[in-house]
C-alpha cells in the first residue's frame, strides 16, 4: 500500500473532512473535492481493516544487555 498512514490518522482526516463539509461555507467545487477526499479515505480505512494481519514480535535479550524484537510466528499452530 503506497499510503502507510495508520487507521487512526486516516480516520481522523476523514472526520475532519466531513466536519468541514458540514460547516458549509465552501464553494460547490470545494465541497465536491472534500467529498471525494472523504470517500477515498473511507476506502483506505476499510482496506486497512480488511487486510490487517496481526504482527507479533517477541523481546529477546542480546549479548550486550539490550533487547531486540524478533518475529513470533508459530502462535497460529496448535
Amino acid at each position: 500500500m503506497p499510503d502507510q498512514k495508520s487507521f487512526e490518522a486516516l480516520y481522523g482526516e476523514m472526520e475532519e473532512a466531513v466536519r468541514q463539509l458540514e460547516a458549509g461555507d465552501l464553494s460547490l467545487e470545494e465541497s465536491l473535492a472534500l467529498f471525494a477526499r472523504a470517500t477515498a479515505l473511507a476506502e483506505q480505512c476499510n482496506a486497512l481493516l480488511d487486510s490487517a494481519e496481526l504482527r507479533v514480535r517477541q523481546l529477546v535479550s542480546q549479548p550486550d544487555g539490550s533487547s531486540a524484537a524478533e518475529p513470533f510466528e508459530n502462535w497460529q499452530n496448535g
Binding site: L21, L28, S31, F35, A38, A42, L49
Partner: peptide, 26 residues
C-alpha cells in the same frame, strides 16, 4: 473492527447527506 467499519460508514453517510443537500440547493 466491525464497529470501526460501521463508524466509517456512518461518517460517509453524514458526508453524503451534506452533499445531497448542497446539490439540491445548486
Amino acid at each position: 473492527g466491525r464497529e470501526l467499519s460501521a463508524a466509517v460508514a456512518a461518517l460517509m453517510a453524514r458526508a453524503e447527506r451534506q452533499l445531497t443537500g448542497r446539490l439540491a440547493d445548486e
